[in-house]
Each structure stands twice: as C-alpha cells, then as structure tokens.
Amino acid sequence: MTYVIAQPCVDVKDKACIDECPVDCIYEGQRSLYIHPDECVDCGACEPVCPVEAIFYEDDTPEEWQAYYKANVEFFDELGSPGGASKLGPVELDHPLVSALPRQGADE
C-alpha cells in the first residue's frame, strides 16, 4: 500500500484524483473513494489534486486517520482485484469505518 484516502473524502468524493490516476486504481464506494493497495504504483499524482487534502502517503497519514489505511485495504476483501476502477464503476459498498460515520458536509 502506498497512498491512503482518509476521512476528509467521506461524503465529498470530488473525484479529481480519479482523473489524475494513470493506473485507474481509485475506486468509488457509496460515501468515499478507496485506493487499491495492489494496483497503486506509488506515483503520487492523486495527492496534490485532492481539494480536501484527504490523500496521504501511507507513512504520512495523520495519527487521527491511521485506521483509514486498514479501511482502504479491507475495502477490497470482497472485490478482489478488478483490474481497474473504470470498468467496475461505483460500488454500493463502504468499509464499516466509513459507514459508521455521521453524514459529513452540507447534508449534515
């Protein structure tokens, strides 16, 4: 795993990172985006374009969002490795960590 999408993405899903990802490894869940740990090539293209600063290099993830590393990995337990987010499309699923959060942003 190289990059992690953390709590600031929940209920925002701007998707600028998806447009920048050269390997199509950022998948869309119901309330958040997730980076596939085996498909990410550690290029870092996604990090600077995130408007809510939700993407972190694994070792740089703030302490309060460390659990999002596990959430990004475990999100793919059922999905496996589809080989690209665009051919799979949005998934009606989220990691339990994300599902348990109250709604964020304008919909609060």
Rank of each mutant, 00 (worst) to 15 (best):
Q30W: 06
Y3D: 09
C46T: 12
L93R: 13
Q66C: 01
C43S: 14
D107Y: 09
M1L: 07
E39L: 09
A100E: 11
V49W: 01
P90M: 00
V10A: 03
P48W: 01
S32A: 15
E92H: 07
D77A: 13
G80L: 00
I26N: 06
Y57C: 02
C40P: 10
P96D: 06
D19R: 11
Q30K: 14
F56R: 04
G80S: 08
K13M: 15
F56Q: 07
H95S: 05
G105P: 05
E28P: 10
P82T: 11
C50L: 04
D14W: 01
K15N: 14
F75K: 05
Y3E: 09
Q30A: 13
P82Y: 02
E63N: 10
Y34L: 05
D107R: 11
Y57P: 10
Y27M: 08
P102T: 06
G29K: 01
C9G: 00
A16Y: 12
T2N: 13
Y68W: 11
Y57H: 12
E63V: 12
A54Y: 04
V52H: 00
E47Y: 00
D77S: 12
S99A: 15
E39K: 04
L93M: 13
W65F: 14
R103I: 13
L88A: 09
V73L: 07
I5G: 03
E63F: 05
I18M: 11
Y3C: 06
D19W: 00
K15E: 14
P48K: 02
I55N: 06
K13Y: 04
L93Y: 14
L101E: 02
C17A: 08
D60E: 15
I35G: 10
R31P: 04
G84D: 06
H36N: 14
E28S: 14
A45P: 08
Y27T: 14
N72H: 03
E20K: 13
Y27A: 11
E47F: 01
V41P: 03
T61S: 06
C46G: 10
V12T: 08
I26E: 08
V49R: 05
S81M: 02
S81N: 15
Q7F: 07
E74S: 04
Y3I: 10
E47N: 05
N72C: 03
V73R: 11
E108L: 07
Q7S: 11
L33S: 14
V91A: 05
L33Y: 07
V10I: 15
E74C: 02
E108S: 12
Y27S: 13
K87G: 15
S86V: 10
V12P: 02
P51E: 08
I55C: 09
Q104D: 07
E108Q: 13
S32D: 03
A71G: 09
P48Q: 07
V91M: 05
C46S: 09
E47M: 10
